[in-house]
Design a protein around this nucleic acid. Structure first.
Length: 700
DNA sequence: TGTAAGACTTGGAATAATCTTC
DNA sequence: GAAGATTATTCCAAGTCTTACA
C-alpha cells in the first residue's frame, strides 16, 4: 500500500535523514517516536482496510452512466432539536425574554456578535427582518422595533461561558463525547456500494442558522431554516432497506436512481439551492472521477500545442465573436482564470473570464491590469504583459463596452466557449486548463528546485512547498493572514538569533584548540559552513543591547522554572539548593538590568555574560558535535522562517487537493526517498489511493 | 436559442486534533 | 502539563458544466 519506499527497516517515519544526537535530542526522540508510532498505526489501518483496487480494472468502454448497482445506507443524521436557555436580550436596556423559536433565531445572531458577520450591515438587516417577521407571527407582543436598540450581549456572554465550560470538561466527559461520535460515525458514516463498505461524506443534515454568504452577498444573514425529513429525498438501491425517518415523520421521497451518486438530497430555503449527501472523498466513486479528471488534463497535453496555435491565430480573426473567444481562451490558458458563468442579482457580484466587465481591466505601461473579485469574493489582481494582439483586442473590447457595468466579452458566453473547446478535444472545457496548467507547472517547478536525494528533509520540504506555492499563486488561492502573524514571525526570528549567537560562541571557544592539530586532523573539524550559518542577519544584527535582553530572558525563564519546581515538588532535601540557585539567578538578573541601564552612558564594548551561561571548553569532539547540533537547528529554523513568510497569504491546500495530479507527488517522493506522509496527511492518502502506485518515472 | 434545474467540483473559514514550547 | 501554534478535517458556500425543457 505504501509506495514511498520507506520500508519498516528504516530508522524512523522520515527515513534515515534525521540525525539523532544526545541530550537536546532526547525530547525530540520521544516526540518523533510518538509520531513514528502514529504513522505506523495509520499505515496499518490503511493496509487493513479491505481494499478494492478499482483502478486496476478500469475499462474504458464501460457504461459510465450507471454509477452503482447496489446501494444500502442508513440515511441522514438530523441535528438535535432546539433546547431553550431562557437568557434574555436587552431592548433599550430592558430585559426581553423570548419564546423558543425566536430565542433560537436571536441566538444565531448573538453567537456571531464579535465576528465580521455580526458587524456586517447587510447581515444585520437581513437577520433583523427575519426576526421582525417571526415576531409578527407570534401571539406575544414584543417591544422590539429597531436593531440599534437591541443589546445581544447577555446571550453572547452566556454562549461564551458555555464554550469555556466545554473546554473545562473532564477527561471522562470528553472521552464519552468522542465515543458517541464514533458510534454515530459507525452507523451513518458507511454505506454498501456494489458489495463493498464505503465511507459516506456529509451525512449530517445542515443545522439551522443564519446564512453566511461570502463577500457582499445580498442574502447574507437570512434565516436558514431547520430541515425536516419531509423535505428530504433518499436515493437508495431498490432491494435495500429504507432507513427509518425520525419518529412521527416520513421522507419526502425515496428514489432508486442509479445514474447519480448522491444518497440524499434536499432544497435549502435561502437560495433555493439543492444540497446533497455524497460519498467521502476517499470512496471509489469519487476516486474514479478524480482519476478521470487528471487523465483528461493529461489528454489536453497532447492537444495543447495545436489548441494554442488555433487560438493565437484566431486573435486577429475578422470575426468579432471569434476574436473574443480566442482572447478569452488566451486568458484562461495563460492566467488560469475560471470560465465565468453569468450570475443573478441575488448573489455576490463576482466574475470570471467571460463575465469580466469594463471596469475590471485597465492598461498601464503597456501592460494589462486585471483587478476583480473572483470566486468567494477573493480579489484577483495581476499586472501582466500579454501578446500584442491580446492587448489590442482587450483595448477594443473595452472601448466597445463603453461604460462600467458592461461586459468585456459581450459576444460570447461559457456555454459557447465550452462547446468550441469540446470540438477541439472531446470532453474539453475551460476548467480542464486550470487542472492541466496547475499540474504541469507543479511538475516543472519541482524539477527546477535545487535539491538532490542527499538533501535534508527540511530542504526537500521547502522545495516541494515552493513548487506547490507557484501553483497556488497561479490559481490565486489566497487566505487571510493569521492574526498575530508578525508576532509569530519575529518570535521565530528571535529564536534564530539566539541559535546563531550560541553557535558563534561555541565556534570561538573551539577554534583556539584546533591550532595545535595536524593539517589532516584540522580538516576533520571544518568550521567554515558553521561560521557561514551563524553570520548575522544584516536586518537584525546582534547588538550588546540585544544580548542583554537575551540573557535577561534566559534568566527570567530559569527563575520561573525554579519557582514552579519549588512550588510543586520541593522536598526538604532539595529546597535549600533551589533557594540558593534562585538567589544567584535573581542577583544575576539585577546585575544584568543595571548593566543594561548603564549601556547608554558608557560605551563599554564587552557585554557582561552571567556566570551560569559562560562556556567552558571540554573536548574538541564534544564541542564540535554541539556546533553541529546548533547548525542543524539553525538551518531548520531558517527554512521554517522563509517557508512561513512565503506562505503568509497563500493557501497551498486547495491546489494540492484539487489541481495537482497526486501521482507527481508520489513519484517525486519515491525518487527522493522521502515518505509521501510528509506531504499527504491521512485523508489525502485515502483520497489518492489510486495514485500511490505511481512509479518514480511517472510524468504528468 | 435561452433558461432553469440538477449534479458535481472547488474553495476559504471554522473547528478539532496534534505538536511544540515553556 | 498547560498554553499557544500548527496542521488536519469538517463544513457548507460558490463555482462549473451538462441536460432538460420551452
Amino acid at each position: 500500500m505504501n509506495g514511498s519506499g520507506n520500508g519498516n527497516g528504516k530508522e524512523n517515519g522520515y527515513g534515515k535523514r534525521v540525525k539523532v544526537e544526545s541530550e537536546v535530542a532526547r525530547k525530540k526522540i520521544k516526540t518523533e517516536g510518538e509520531k513514528k508510532r502514529r504513522v505506523k498505526r495509520e499505515q496499518k489501518e490503511e493496509e487493513e482496510a479491505e481494499e478494492y483496487e478499482w483502478w486496476r480494472d478500469q475499462n474504458g468502454d464501460k457504461d459510465d452512466t450507471i454509477r452503482w448497482t447496489q446501494l444500502e445506507h442508513q440515511g441522514v443524521l438530523f441535528p438535535p432539536e432546539y433546547v431553550p436557555h431562557g437568557v434574555p436580550i436587552l431592548y433599550d436596556g430592558e430585559k426581553v425574554y423570548l419564546e423558543p423559536e425566536i430565542e433560537e433565531l436571536v441566538g444565531f445572531f448573538a453567537a456571531l456578535l464579535e465576528t465580521e458577520h455580526g458587524a456586517n450591515p447587510t447581515f444585520q438587516r437581513n437577520f433583523f427582518n427575519e426576526l421582525k417577521l417571526l415576531m409578527s407571527k407570534s401571539k406575544r407582543k414584543y417591544p422590539i422595533k429597531e436593531f440599534s436598540r437591541c443589546d445581544f450581549r447577555p446571550m453572547y456572554e452566556y454562549f461564551q461561558k458555555q464554550k469555556e465550560e466545554k473546554k473545562q470538561m473532564s477527561k471522562e466527559e470528553k472521552a464519552a463525547l468522542l465515543e458517541e461520535r464514533k458510534m454515530i460515525e459507525e452507523k451513518y458514516g458507511y454505506c454498501i456500494l456494489d458489495g463493498r463498505r464505503e465511507k459516506v461524506g456529509n451525512f449530517r443534515i445542515e443545522p439551522p442558522g443564519l446564512f453566511r454568504g461570502r463577500g457582499a452577498h445580498p442574502k447574507t444573514g437570512c434565516y436558514k431554516r431547520r430541515v425536516r425529513a419531509e423535505q428530504i429525498t433518499i436515493n437508495i438501491g431498490k432491494d435495500a432497506k429504507i432507513p427509518e425517518p425520525p419518529k412521527g415523520s416520513k421522507w419526502g421521497n425515496v428514489i432508486h436512481d442509479q445514474t447519480v451518486t448522491w444518497l440524499a438530497m434536499w432544497k435549502e430555503n435561502v437560495n433555493d439551492n439543492t444540497k446533497y449527501v455524497f460519498l467521502a472523498a476517499g470512496s471509489s466513486l469519487k476516486g474514479q472521477s478524480d482519476l478521470k479528471k487528471y487523465e483528461k488534463a493529461r489528454e489536453l497535453k497532447k492537444h495543447i500545442v495545436r489548441i494554442r496555435k488555433d487560438y493565437m491565430a484566431a486573435l486577429t480573426s475578422s470575426d468579432g465573436k471569434t476574436r473574443q473567444r480566442a482572447t478569452a481562451l488566451y486568458l484562461i490558458d495563460r492566467f488560469a482564470l475560471r470560465a465565468g458563468n453569468e450570475k443573478g442579482d441575488d448573489q455576490a457580484d463576482t466574475v470570471g473570464c467571460c463575465s469580466l466587465r469594463y471596469e475590471h481591466v485597465t492598461f498601464e505601461d503597456g501592460k494589462v491590469v486585471f483587478d476583480f473579485l473572483g470566486k468567494d469574493s477573493i480579489r484577483y489582481y495581476n499586472k501582466v504583459e500579454v501578446h500584442p494582439a491580446v492587448y489590442r483586442n482587450l483595448v477594443s473590447f473595452q472601448r466597445a463596452a463603453k461604460t462600467p457595468g458592461n461586459l468585456l466579452f459581450s459576444l460570447i458566453n461559457t456555454v459557447e466557449l465550452n462547446k468550441h473547446l469540446s470540438s477541439l478535444m472531446p470532453g474539453l472545457s475551460a476548467k480542464v486548463f486550470r487542472t492541466y496548467n496547475a499540474s504541469h507547472t507543479f511538475q516543472q517547478e519541482l524539477e527546477k528546485q535545487d535539491v538532490t536525494p542527499a538533501s535534508s528533509i527540511h530542504e526537500l520540504t521547502l522545495a516541494y512547498n515552493r513548487a506547490n506555492r507557484q501553483v497556488a499563486v497561479l490559481c490565486n488561492h489566497q487566505r487571510a493572514v493569521a492574526k498575530n502573524f508578525s508576532g509569530q514571525l519575529s518570535k521565530i526570528a528571535d529564536r534564530l538569533m539566539g541559535l546563531r549567537y550560541e553557535c558563534r560562541r561555541h565556534i570561538d571557544l573551539l577554534k583556539p584548540n584546533l591550532t595545535d592539530l595536524s593539517l589532516a586532523d584540522r580538516a576533520k573539524y571544518d568550521l567554515a559552513p558553521f561560521e557561514q550559518a551563524c553570520r548575522d542577519d544584516p536586518d537584525r544584527p546582534i547588538t550588546t543591547e540585544w544580548l542583554y535582553s537575551y540573557f535577561a530572558d534566559l534568566l527570567t525563564k530559569d527563575i520561573e522554572r525554579l519557582e514552579k519546581k519549588k512550588a510543586s515538588d520541593a522536598t526538604q532535601s532539595n529546597l535549600d539548593s533551589i533557594e540558593e540557585k534562585l538567589a544567584s539567578l535573581s542577583s544575576e538578573l539585577s546585575t544584568l538590568n543595571s548593566k543594561k541601564e548603564a549601556l547608554s552612558s558608557s560605551k563599554s564594548s564587552k557585554p557582561y555574560i552571567p556566570e551560569m551561561y559562560r562556556l567552558t571548553f571540554n573536548s574538541i569532539d564534544k564541542s564540535f558535535s554541539t556546533i553541529q547540533r546548533l547548525y542543524t537547528r539553525i538551518v531548520a529554523t531558517k527554512t521554517a522562517l522563509v517557508d512561513k513568510d512565503e506562505n503568509k497569504t497563500t493557501a497551498l491546500g486547495t491546489s494540492k487537493i484539487n489541481y495537482i495530479d497526486p501521482r507527481i507527488t508520489v513519484s517525486w517522493c519515491k525518487k527522493f526517498d522521502i515518505p509521501v506522509e510528509k506531504f499527504f496527511p491521512k485523508t489525502l492518502r485515502e483520497k489518492f489511493k489510486w495514485a500511490m502506485h505511481a512509479d518514480k518515472n511517472f510524468k504528468f
